[in-house]
Design a protein around this nucleic acid. Structure first.
Length: 587
RNA sequence: GCGGCCGUCGUCUAGUCUGGUUUAGGACACAGGCCUUCCAAGCCUGUGAUCCCGGGUUCGAAUCCCGGCGGCCGCACCA
């Protein structure tokens, strides 16, 4: 590609490396490739699995969150209820002269002073009428507009071969959790708070996905829905996180055109009202931890609050976690939305299934209720045919108002009907409430798995003495150990393959390489980020020791072969220092 | 989806303007062998491109023309 710059940027270099060393590449290349789809090779797949494992450690295992797997395709009802059909379908309008496309609702807001919430309700025909009546022209070139059309960013399909039933590919995994809420809640023995996570593919028919792993049409999403009682929003593990600092860009500052980063402890962010839900602050702190574990230093991370019109339709507050990358600057890696009871409420309306949970009061609450009981024996003769209607109106009226009026005036006017004291009996009733029903609130951290893979690669990548090295944190490295005979003769290769076998049986991800010189093999290993290299040399034949080489410092230590499994477990699981793996070795 | 630039072995590229001199050349990488007592050394051999796809012009097209696909950048979009 001659159009490429002489010194390619990190994104380009990483994509080349990813392709060459089997991390990932664009799919369907033999047919010319299709943008927005990617295939992971064996190193990429492993790296992605390790990253997801890391997320599970932090968000799933320790918090007792439950993981489920639901279908990618859903009947249209699901996404009508969730509001996606309405919100993913943007009316677009094209200028006939300069061919630029605009969002029709944005134009209406700007030039016809129609509020966004109202503009959304307009049909295409109405949009067209407003554009014509107001004489709105292209703001760029003054040309006239063509027919407004919907652009749907969900993948649409039909369910069954001859069916008219519409289905959609899910644009997020969250709905798969919400629709199963009742069942999941019962299975967890009806306790709040509780969280459910789902890691799986999602589909969005992006207009122009052109940023490698950053924007895909089919991607892996990790949606965690955490349900809690809005009356008891306190997080019981807040203490563990309250001093963790977060770097926030607040909406109020954004309004004044500032992207100033406010660095505050979780505790302070809650006290000052920067973050509305306690649980959300915990997930943000965990998200920061996850990224640090993936190799992104805190100063390259921030959480940017979304302005009301930038937010998703379901959220009352949301922050995007962003990471600073070389090519594009700040890039979103996770979203943290306070979805309130929006989704469950909508599914309750659309499906008719009661999504409320029952909360038992500690003590039954006794309340006194005034009941106005119509005495039909008296009402009948007076109101005749109207009697039933009057009784019904009476039951809908405010009993307190009725009582006050009758006591004061001796009657109560129900429209044109005059109800006298003798027509009713006013009873004070004690009612025992054992609990109440409500819809839980939800905070949602949502990660893009593929973006994390790219971020991990970009932050691991550096060049030492002209060689590319991927310095992955040891827990996410796709290959853990390389085993090398120093030279390929005198029985060294045989010894190396024995060690290889042993380590494989111990459950390590190991690679054995005997081609070319040992220096070349080290270089290749560094390039795919293998943290440790074990070299069999002539000393090995004498005393059964090998050298262990550190990817990042290129230092070597010497240890006995029998101790390797134990030492490597310590290194990968308990994170002991490299220097503690053996005696320092100098050639 | 619009505009600009671009598309040749896995990668980087020579050749394209000025159609034939090239079985499309090189370097790196890769595979096999030799060598090699620790950081991409060297030598030999080999694999690998119907020049993005389709159509047209021509005796003849990687080269010229048209359409499509893909990439990068900008605009727009990104719940």
């Amino acid at each position: 590609m001659t159009g490429e710059p002489k010194t390619p940027d990190k994104f380009t270099v990483i994509n080349e490396l990813a392709r060459r060393r089997c991390f990932y590449w664009q799919s369907y290349e033999i047919y010319g490739g299709v943008s927005g789809f990617v295939t992971y090779g064996f190193l990429g797949t492993k790296l992605k699995q390790n990253i997801e494992k890391k997320l599970r450690e932090l968000f799933v295992n320790k918090l007792g969150v439950l993981e489920i797997e639901s279908p990618v395709i859903a009947p249209s009802k699901v996404f009508e209820a969730s509001g996606h059909v309405g919100h993913f379908k943007e009316p677009m309008i094209e200028c006939l002269k300069c061919k630029r496309r605009f969002r029709a609702d944005h134009l209406l807001r700007e030039f016809a002073e129609i509020k966004e919430s109202e503009a959304e309700k307009l049909s295409l025909k109405e949009v067209k009428e407003v554009i014509e009546n107001r004489g709105i022209h292209c703001p760029e070139c003054g040309g006239t507009f063509g027919e407004p059309k919907y652009f749907l960013t969900m993948f649409k399909t039909t369910l069954g071969p001859y069916s008219e039933a519409v289905g959609y590919g899910r644009p997020e995994a969250a709905q798969g959790i919400f629709v199963e809420f009742k069942h999941l809640y019962e299975m967890t023995r009806e306790k709040l708070p509780f969280g459910v996570i789902q890691i799986g593919h999602a589909l969005r028919n992006e207009i122009s996905p052109r940023q490698g792993l950053i924007r895909l049409r089919e991607f892996t999403i990790m949606d965690l829905e955490f349900f809690f009682d809005p009356e008891e929003p306190n997080c019981f593990i807040l203490k563990d996180f309250e001093n963790e600092t977060l770097r926030l860009v607040l909406a109020e500052n954004k309004l004044h055109g500032s992207e100033e980063i406010v660095e505050v402890a979780v505790k302070e962010a809650l006290e000052k009202g920067y973050i509305k839900a306690e649980w959300q602050s915990i997930f943000m702190a965990l998200a920061k931890k996850l990224l640090i574990d993936l190799g992104v230093p805190a100063e390259k991370q921030r959480f940017i609050e979304k302005l009301p019109w930038e937010r998703a339709h379901y959220a009352v507050q949301s922050f995007d976690q962003e990471v600073y990358v070389e090519r594009w600057g700040w890039v979103e890696v996770s979203g943290h939305a306070y979805r309130t009871d929006y989704d469950l409420k909508r599914h309750m309306q659309f499906s008719g299934t009661d999504m409320r949970v029952f909360k038992r009061h500690e003590k039954p609450v006794e309340t006194e209720q005034i009941v106005v009981k119509p005495l039909m024996a008296k009402l009948g003769p007076v109101f005749k045919a109207e009697a039933a209607k009057v009784a019904k109106m009476l039951s809908e009226a405010d009993p307190k108002e009725v009582e006050v009026s009758i006591r004061k005036n001796g009657y109560y006017m129900l429209g044109k009907h005059k109800v006298l004291q003798e027509h009713v009996e006013i009873i004070r009733q004690k009612i025992k409430e054992r609990g109440k029903r409500f819809i839980p609130h939800v905070v949602e951290p949502s990660f893009g798995s593929d973006r994390l893979v790219y971020i991990a690669l970009e932050f691991a990548y550096h060049v030492k003495d002209g060689r590319a090295i991927l310095s992955f944190p040891r827990e996410i490295a796709p290959v853990q150990v390389g085993v090398y005979p120093l030279v390929t003769k005198d029985g060294l290769p045989e010894k190396a393959s024995q060690i290889y076998e042993t380590l494989i049986n111990e459950g390590f991800i190991v690679e054995c390489d005997e081609t070319g010189s040992v220096g070349r093999r080290y270089a290749r290993a560094d390039e795919i980020g293998i943290p440790l290299g074990i070299t069999v040399d002539y000393q090995t034949l004498k005393d059964n020791t090998v050298t262990i080489r550190d990817r990042d410092s290129w230092k070597q230590v010497r240890s006995r072969i029998e101790r390797l499994p134990e030492l490597l477990h310590k290194y990968f699981r308990w994170k002991v220092d490299f220097e503690d793996l053996g005696q320092s070795f100098e050639r």
